[in-house]
Amino acid sequence: MHVERSVLTTIGAMLVLMTALPWFVGQVSEDVFFEWPFFLEVAIGGLLSGVMYSLVALGFVLIFKASGVFNFAQGAMVLFAALSFVGLKDLGVPLWLCFILTAGIMTLVAMTIERLVLRPLVNQEPIILFMVTIGIAYVLDGLGQMIWGSEVRMLDIGLPQDPSFFFDGKILINQFDMFAALIAGALVAALVIFFQYTKTGRALRAVADDHQAAMSVGIPLQHIWVVVWTVAGLVALVAGIMWGGKLGVQFSLALIALKALPVLILGGFTSIPGAIIGGLIVGAGEKVSEVFLGPLVGGGIEDWFAYMLALVFLVFRPQGLFGEKIIERV
């Protein structure tokens, strides 16, 4: 993968700023407690949270990359997948079978969306497809709750929840977060292999590069859309299981899409590595800012800080860190 020098410079500058600013504030303000081990603990915790954000952002990227559609329903897909998974589990189905069955359900959802919604709208404006995904989000939200109920459900997937201490107790890291990051990493590796080394993956990349050129060499667009929505559904399933294991499966899971938006703006809407790096920057950035800059302004800056970071990025790099620079000729 070729990485522009300016991207590396930007990331480097952000890392320096994210380290130097808290240190400086810690020296001049009595309200802020700064010690290097604690800073590292916050930054590592943020990076691990960032991986969880990336997991959600990946679903958006996959669909946008292949079809140019910003899928507003990705959060609803996470909720629907998690509700189906935990619903089956509560019926006594073993976990591995729940995963396979829910993957089947998400494939069915992808096929239904392609057949009933996307196919009749081929060649329509992107904004129309975007509006359609808002409709899909509402349908999935309602359908999921109608079938499985709105009650909160506990989801224990057997991951350890206890904190681990390192460096004589100076740094604490939550084991669940570590395992979640590993699983997310494995998912990304699987996606990379799928995109780079399989025939379908190559077809997906071809469609992403140029719809019409791909069709002209015989790649069936409708089939590709089903595949990409299915893959996004599977990513939503993994994200739903990890977030559901953390918070319990409930309607609020649909709101985690909000956490993915700044990640997308930062990383770029069309780049899988962008979603990962964007997630890590947003995760670490918001935690470091909340802990070390938050006390200066009364706290509660975590959420809007991520969006502010994304907005600043929009000004200088509208395509994000790894997104494609779109030049439209008139």
Binding site: F38, G45, I256, K259, K287, G298, G299, G300, E302
Partner: peptide, 22 residues
């Protein structure tokens, strides 16, 4: 000491790092 949590509160790691570790 006051710790506001923005809606909906899905992510509170930094709040609790400040509370529990600081």
């Amino acid at each position: 000491s006051l710790f506001p949590v923005p809606h909906p509160g899905l992510e509170q790691k930094s709040t609790w790092l400040k509370i529990g570790r600081q």
